[in-house]
């Protein structure tokens, strides 16, 4: 008899029970299942749902090369010092052409690999358009249901995906490094707005102070400058500043009272719904061939209908129905 679960031949409730009991192999298989989506995933998530809502979900994002993985590694160690269990979802982009990916974030977290209180899972973005948020939030739910107290979601903030992380996390930390001027410019585009905590990593670099100053002045210029965002310096490689970061995360989380958390959860649901619905519309539209759609497109091309009006018409009507 094998205890390695083969989910397709199991009932969802069996697997859910094993996940909730903290069986690692079952957690791993459950993640594969929810990541793939579809009916099995939906059934499993339903069976897991009542056990969710306990974990703290921390998003950590930033440009490539700022030391996110090293920071996450150090944060794991810090949380483990307090005997808290930690899961990490390390997200890397898939190739849009082949769908393949190299998932290398674990390299910086090697020291925790045999710790029973740590569960690290690499996730490929598998395309965009909300798919990432959806998969990540499902995986987080599995880990939550499995009883992991902290779930850290690490994503590369190199484009759209850094925005996605706030769809999933309770608290979002944005990491930058000294001397990456371009990234700071890019952050104006919205990353700063989503940050609950800001970190300047590699603080032993002589340029670090300059970067901190730049960020402070940018924080002051935000539209919601009244919202206080802690700005911390870390040198993750030497574990410098990590206890302070853990404190800041705790405080940010505690500031979200029950009501705040519930609100955030609803906001997350709303954003998730928007991204996923958008993805579905886009996919369906691409797959649609039909008279109604043709008419709509022809009118748009002829300038009779502007795009916005056409979109509203699309949502109201049933143009994507095959006929």
């Amino acid at each position: 008899m094998s205890v390695r679960p083969a989910v397709e031949s199991w009932g969802a409730s069996d697997l859910a029970a094993r996940v909730r009991a903290g069986n690692r192999a079952s957690i791993a298989r459950a993640i594969s299942t929810v990541e793939a989506g579809g009916k099995a995933s939906a059934e499993l998530l339903k069976a897991l749902h009542e056990a969710t809502g306990r974990a703290r979900l921390f998003g950590i994002t930033g440009a490539p090369g700022v030391g996110k993985s090293t920071l996450v590694g150090a944060l794991i160690a810090e949380l483990r010092n307090g005997y808290q269990s930690v899961a990490v979802i390390a997200v890397d982009p898939s190739s849009p052409v082949t769908g393949g990916a190299i998932l290398g974030d674990r390299v910086r977290m090697t020291q925790h690999v045999e710790d029973d209180g740590v569960f690290i899972r690499s996730l490929a973005s598998r395309g965009s358009g909300g798919g990432l948020s959806l998969a990540t939030s499902r995986v987080a739910e599995v880990l939550d249901a499995a009883g992991l107290e902290n779930v850290i979601i690490e994503t590369v903030g190199a484009g759209q995906s850094e925005i996605d992380v706030i769809d999933v996390a309770d608290i979002t930390t944005v990491v930058c490094a000294p001397g990456l001027g371009d990234d700071i410019q890019a952050m104006k585009a919205g990353l700063l707005e989503v940050a609950d905590v800001l970190v300047v990593n590699k603080a032993d670099d002589p340029m670090a102070t300059l970067t901190v100053n730049q960020l402070e002045s940018m924080l002051a210029l935000r539209s919601d400058a009244g919202r206080k965002v802690p700005l911390l310096k870390t040198a993750a490689r030497d574990a410098v500043g990590i206890p302070e970061l853990a404190d800041a995360l705790n405080q940010a989380f505690e500031k979200l009272d029950q009501q705040g958390r519930a609100e955030r959860r609803l906001q997350r649901m709303q954003r998730l719904l928007a991204t996923v619905a958008g993805g579905i519309v886009a996919r369906r539209l691409k797959a649609t061939r039909g008279r109604r759609l043709d008419q709509l497109l022809t009118r748009m091309a002829a300038g009779e209908l502007d795009v916005e009006t056409a979109a509203v018409a699309l949502l109201k009507s049933d143009v994507w129905r095959q006929d």
């Binding site: 190299i102 290398g104 390299v107 910086r108 490689r237 030497d238």
Partner: peptide, 10 residues
């Protein structure tokens, strides 16, 4: 002085 770790992955 810290362990030497690989600096880069693919």
């Amino acid at each position: 002085m810290g362990d030497g770790e690989p600096l880069i992955v693919p």
